[in-house]
Amino acid sequence: MTPIIIFIPAILSAPFFPAIILKVKAFFGGKKGPPLLIQYYTLAKLFKKGSVYSTSTTYIFKLGPMVSLSAALTALMFLPISGAAPLFSFKGDVLFVLYLLGLGRFFTIAAALDTASPFEGMGAAREAYFPIICEATTFMIFILFYRLTGELTLASFFYGNHPLELWRVAGAPLAFVVTAFFIVLLTENARVPVDDPATHLELTMIHEVMVLDHSGPDFGFIEMGSFCKLFFYAAIVSRLVFPFDLGHPAMNLAAFSLIMLLIYAAVGVIESVMARYRMDRVPKFVLTSFALAFVATIITLEFVK
């Protein structure tokens, strides 16, 4: 029962956290910023609207937003949010979740290509390129976790005080892993310094350009899907940063929410103090995360023999 009690509020709170990023950015800009519930208003507004479909699109275009949202939601079901047991878990679900996220991305890209717009094709090419390196990083991290725990489920990595066990065995290299995962978070969710979610200039956008043609509820699905995806990555980082099990689910949830707020605030601070990288510099930035994960793996393998 507890997994569902935690899962549903988690989904419902997913649009809340990105508002923290906006608030932090507004604070740095000396502005008041949008209200904390802004994303809920946006979603409500989008779902009230009707959809407009270009005549050049096919059913793929309509499928894209739904698949990407449901992929993100399903991935969240396998994650031990706040250290509680996940809804589902089976041997090897790590691979399943990674490919699920890949499927969501594939359909976003396919929908973008389906519009037959050259701009969206450009964004799709970038969206396909950068996350490849991210995937390599994520796989490297999970290979490391597999070596440490001997199991291949998200629950065995992040449930209860299992992350503490990872820290105890791996030590300092796990700090590299956290950093690498944070870079993956920034890249996968199209945040600064990889992509600027605030810009609306087609030539510089990555993620934003692909969803230009979606409107109304479809765009709402895409937004919700991206909130869930950000929540997914932030939840993993929060489990690694705060690996303790406080004994009571409510206390765990409180601590988890606090850490999540801090992570989103950190994303906001990064967005405020950094500029976007030039497009040809982005691969190097993402490659840094791979290097971190790789070094962590090599070093740890030396100890765990």
């Binding site: 065995v169 030590g171 300092a172 971190l292 070093i299 100890f303």
Partner: peptide
């Protein structure tokens, strides 16, 4: 990861 020096050296590898 037992020894403190290993932690510092892993940062050297990173550098």
């Amino acid at each position: 990861m037992t020894h403190l020096v290993d932690i510092i050296l892993s940062f050297v590898l990173l550098s």
